[in-house]
Design a protein around this nucleic acid. Structure first.
Lengths: 354, 354
DNA sequence: ATGAAAGCGCTAACAC
DNA sequence: GTGTTAGCGCTTTCAT
C-alpha cells in the first residue's frame, strides 16, 4: 500500500486539494468545521507531508552567506575550505552558499558588507567577527528584514543573533585547566603561562575566564601568570617566550589559547623542555606535529566542518520554520591526545570498502 | 536569472528532454556525439540537478532496518531512542526506518530475522551483533540481494558489510590507557584492574587490546591485571570487586570496558577509595553521576545519535549511489571529563533564543 | 469558503 | 537513437 498523499486526504475528507493545502499550511479562509474534517482525515490515514515535493512546488530556494575575517592563517583557510565543502553538498538542494572575507578589525567595512546583504536577497548570514556597537546595530537591522543571523565560532552575546554555532569557550578553558592540572601532577614547577592572541577577542576572553575558574577551584597550588599577548603570531612567541622561561624556572605548564603554536613548539623543542605540559587549541598540521612529537600534551578542538554544516542546517530550518535537532547541532568540545588523533579522510566513494 | 533546468539543457543542445535524461543518468541508447553535445550544454550553463525533483519523479522511497540486541540496559534503550529520533527526522523524506530487537546470543534467531528481510523489500540493514559464521553467511546473502548491510557500533571485520558505523575501539582502549596512565601519575599503586562484559564481544576485545598496547608502550611500570569478566552486570561487580581490592592493595586504577558501572561506583564510594583512578565508557545517568561525584575520572563516549543518523545517511547514499562525506560520518571518540560534560538538549524550536 | 487546473524539475513509458 | 507525453506530491493562481 503506497504512502498516503494529499489526494487521499481530499477524497477521505470530501474536499478539494486546495482546501487540504490551506489546512496543511494553516492559511485562512476555511471553516472551522472543514478544518476539523481535514485534520481527522490526516490523522486517520497517517499522512506525512513530502517536504521535497512541497519545496519543489513552492520553487523555494535559499541563499546563505558566511562572513568571515580576512587573513591567511591555517585556521581561516580551513574554515573557508569546509564552508566550500558544505556548499557543494547542498547545491543540489537549491541552496546557494557564498563566503565573503571582510577586514574584521574594521567595523565599518563589516557593517557596509552586512548592509549590502540587507538590500540584496539573502535568507541567512553567519558572521564571525568581534562584537562592536556598529555590528550589533547592523545585526538588529538584518533581523528586522527577516534575515537569519548566526554568530559563527565567536559568540556575540549582546547582539540579537538567532543562534551561536561553536563550542562553549568558557567550558573549553575549564577543560584545558583540568587537563593541565592533572597532567602536571606533583611537579615542583607550579606556574602556568597563558598565551593568547586577540583577534577573535571574545573566544579568547572566554577561554581564559574558564581556565582561571577551574585552576582556582581544582588546583589552588598552581599559579596562573599574566597573559602573554602574542597576536596569534609565532614570531612574537618565538621572540618573547625564551626570556620568560629563563626568568621563571617555575613555569611547568603553558596554555596556548590561540594561534602561533609553531612558536611555542620550536622554543620548547629547542630548549629540550619536555617537562613543560602544553595544552593548545585546534588541530592543524602544526599542532598535530606538536602532539605527535610530545611537545603538546593535549589539544582542544572543534570540528569546523561540523560547524559549517550546522550553520547551513540552522539557517535552512529557520527559513522553513522547522524545528532543529539540538543534539545534532551541538558543536562538540573535543579533547585530542596522541591516542585518539583522527585519521585524515575526505570524500569517499562507494568502492572504498567492498 | 533562475537556475537552469533540464529544459535549458535540451534547448541549448537541440535535443529532447528524454535524451537529456538519458545522458544525465548515463543510460544507453545515445550516440557519442549527442552525449558530447549535451554534456557541453550542461557545463556551459552550469546545470546542477535538483535531486529532490528527481527522486519525486522516480517515486523513490527507502526502507531501512536496524537490528539490535534484546535487553533492557540503559545503553540499548538509549540506542533505540536515538534510532527513533532519526526515524522521525527522515520520515518526511520518504525514508522508512524500523527497529527490530533480536536475541543477539542466538545466532539462529538473528539469521532467521535477516533472511526474512532478504525476502521482503528492504534497502538497507544496520546490525549490531557478535560475529558468528552464521551471521557472516547471512550478510553475504543479503548483499547478493543488493541490500546494504552496515555493522553498527560493534565491527564485523570478517563479514562482507558495506561499512562500520562506530568508534575505533582499539583507539578507544589506547586512549583509556593514556588517560589512566597520566592521571595515575607517580602514585605508589601500580596495578590496573580491567573489568569487561562480553555481550558485544568484539568491541570489548578491541578495547582491551588497545589498552594493553599503550600501557606497555607508555607506562611500562604499570601492570595490567587479568580481565574481570562481569557480563556488564553491576551485581557481579558489586560482589567480586571488594575482594579483589582487599586482596591487592596495589590496585590504583580501574578500566571499566563495558556496562555495570554502578557496581564500580558503589564499591569505590563505599570504601572511600577516591585514590583509585577510574576510566569508563558511555555517558549514562550512572556514569555521569560517577563523573560529577569524582569517582570516575574520565569517560570515553561515542555519540549514539550521531551513529544512528550516520547509519541512515550511509544507507541512503548507497541506495542512491551517491558519495559520502567521510568527515561527517566519522563517529568521534570523545573524552568527557567533568569540565566538558555536555548539557542535555532535545528538539529545540524557533522560540528558544530570540 | 471552496474547487479546477496548471505547473515546479525531473523521469519513464511508449511511440516513431 | 530520439522525441512526446503523462505523471511524481504538492502549491498556487483564478474561478465560482
Amino acid at each position: 500500500m503506497p504512502r498516503p498523499t494529499v489526494h487521499d486526504i481530499a477524497s477521505k475528507a470530501g474536499v478539494s486539494l486546495a482546501t487540504v493545502d490551506r489546512v496543511l499550511n494553516s492559511r485562512p479562509g476555511v471553516r472551522a468545521k472543514t478544518i476539523d474534517k481535514v485534520n481527522a482525515a490526516i490523522s486517520e490515514i497517517g499522512y506525512v507531508r513530502d517536504v521535497a515535493a512541497a519545496n519543489l512546488a513552492r520553487q523555494r530556494d535559499y541563499r546563505f552567506v558566511f562572513v568571515i575575517p580576512k587573513g591567511e592563517s591555517w585556521f581561516l583557510r580551513q574554515l573557508e575550505n569546509v564552508i566550500d565543502e558544505a556548499r557543494h553538498r547542498v547545491i543540489s538542494q537549491r541552496i546557494q552558499v557564498e563566503t565573503v572575507r571582510v577586514d574584521a578589525d574594521n567595523p565599518h567595512a563589516l557593517v557596509a558588507m552586512l548592509d549590502h546583504f540587507g538590500y540584496h536577497r539573502v535568507d541567512g548570514i553567519a558572521v564571525m567577527a568581534p562584537e562592536t556597537p556598529q555590528l550589533r546595530d547592523a545585526i538588529t537591522h538584518l533581523r528586522q528584514e527577516g534575515i537569519t543571523v548566526l554568530a559563527l565560532l565567536s559568540d556575540l552575546p549582546n547582539s540579537a543573533v538567532d543562534d551561536f554555532v561553536g563550542i562553549d569557550n568558557v567550558a573549553a578553558g575549564r577543560t584545558a585547566a583540568a587537563l593541565i592540572g592533572r597532567f602536571m601532577g606533583e611537579t615542583s614547577a607550579r606556574d602556568i603561562l597563558v598565551i593568547a592572541g586577540s583577534m577573535l577577542a571574545r573566544d579568547h576572553i572566554d577561554r581564559r575566564l574558564g581556565f582561571d575558574q577551574t585552576i582556582q577551584a581544582m588546583f589552588p597550588k598552581l599559579r596562573v601568570l599574566p597573559t602573554l599577548e602574542a597576536w596569534n603570531d609565532a614570531n612574537v612567541i618565538a621572540k618573547r617566550l625564551p626570556a620568560l622561561l629563563a626568568a621563571n624556572r617555575q613555569i611547568g605548564g603553558i596554555y596556548s589559547v590561540g594561534g602561533g603554536n609553531s612558536g611555542v613548539i620550536d622554543v620548547l623543542a629547542k630548549q629540550g623542555r619536555g617537562d613543560v605540559t602544553v595544552i593548545a587549541h585546534d588541530l592543524t598540521p602544526i599542532t598535530q606535529h606538536g602532539l605527535l612529537s610530545g611537545v603538546i600534551d593535549a589539544l582542544i578542538v572543534q570540528d569546523l566542518g561540523h560547524a559549517a554544516r550546522s550553520a547551513v542546517r540552522l539557517m535552512r530550518a529557520r527559513r522553513d520554520r522547522e524545528p532543529v535537532l539540538q543534539a545534532q547541532e551541538r558543536i562538540r568540545l573535543e579533547i585530542i591526545i596522541k591516542e585518539n588523533l583522527p585519521e585524515e579522510g575526505g570524500q569517499i566513494h562507494l568502492e572504498e570498502r567492498q
